[in-house]
Design a protein around this nucleic acid. Sequence first.
DNA 1: AGCTGATTGTACTGATCGGTACAGTGTGCC
DNA 2: GGCACACTGTACCGATCAGTACAATCAGCT
Lengths: 200, 200
Amino acid sequence: METQAASTPRGQRTRDAIVDAAAALMYVDGVAGTSVDKVLAASGAGKSQMYHYFKNKEQLVEAVIDRYLEQILGNQPAIFTLASWADFETWTEQLLDVHRRAGGPIACPLGNLAGEVGDNPKLAPLVDRAYRTWESHLERGLVTLRDKGELDPDADPARLAQAAMTSVQGGLLLAHIRHDLTALEDALGIALTYLRGFKR
Amino acid sequence: METQAASTPRGQRTRDAIVDAAAALMYVDGVAGTSVDKVLAASGAGKSQMYHYFKNKEQLVEAVIDRYLEQILGNQPAIFTLASWADFETWTEQLLDVHRRAGGPIACPLGNLAGEVGDNPKLAPLVDRAYRTWESHLERGLVTLRDKGELDPDADPARLAQAAMTSVQGGLLLAHIRHDLTALEDALGIALTYLRGFKR
DNA sequence: AGCTGATTGTACTGATCGGTACAGTGTGCC
DNA sequence: GGCACACTGTACCGATCAGTACAATCAGCT
């Protein structure tokens, strides 16, 4: 059931190349639209490598989900050190900058997956877990604010974090199909205002 | 380029059955995960019917997108007659009731598609158009309120409507992967409060 | 009845799908 | 050197994919 780890640096490089290629292709074409053959052609690996490291395509997708979470959090490092209201603003700016610089589509890789694997019993929990990890950093930041006396002690950090996440996802979804970041900008602005309403 | 219309009631019934089956299957398995053969098996139609009415699978998807919009708006009839703040609340209640009654997954069929076809040059504009139609009803309701003097004349109905739509989509996406309507309930509550902030 | 066009059933094609078999090569360790 | 094992290349499998060919049937109209 577990994904096979590589035991040498060479193997690790090959494995990474496969996951990277799969992540990039699935970001654009979706899971079902990305065949194993295409992934291998793009990564330069052969089929025996793929099935040496992954039991099947589904396990490759599992690795891709993890990779997406790494990429997402890596693109918004401010999320790890949220300790003031200004930090939250910095965080939203980083979020916007990622897509302002973007050559690819404006979209959240996890959000793209959500619609497709939302009911797959194996993959859906992994997407869920990735979102919860993402959200937990926001929650931790809010708890920090509360402990510093900058957030209403009656506010529910978990709920506020979820509200912020819905704004991010809704904004990205609309921005995606409109090829226009405005929807995300507005959504983030509204979310920040909403959170600041619990400032104390 | 255009979808072939049926010229007899019998043909219309067959065509509808194909679109209905495709809509139901693609809602759960996505576009790429739903083969033409499965659609035909589920609808009881043969392959010659499918290709009599649709040039190819992509045109079938186009018809499915239209069907989704009809289903969505049909499930929230209050959206057609928004003329008071109470009407907006009724609308959000209808939105929630759809998924409370749901046997199927908690999800927006258009949202599921958005991730998958978001960059398909033929299909993405159709998804975009469907969202704009949906959103336009909200905008019209806000204009009605403004004309009745119940909304700040400086408020931008189009922008507020887009903000509401991002809440709906973000809430549905999170509710989908968590199998828990709470995210949508909260998102709609926050959106309503935000809109009411422009009450005059 | 007989004509006409819409509609239908079924068999088929070549391409591609996910996955397997198996023989080979690279590489660290003794 | 030579053993062990991670790693790799390629050919192949049956199933399924989207799409086509073509003959048969149905139904309205005269």
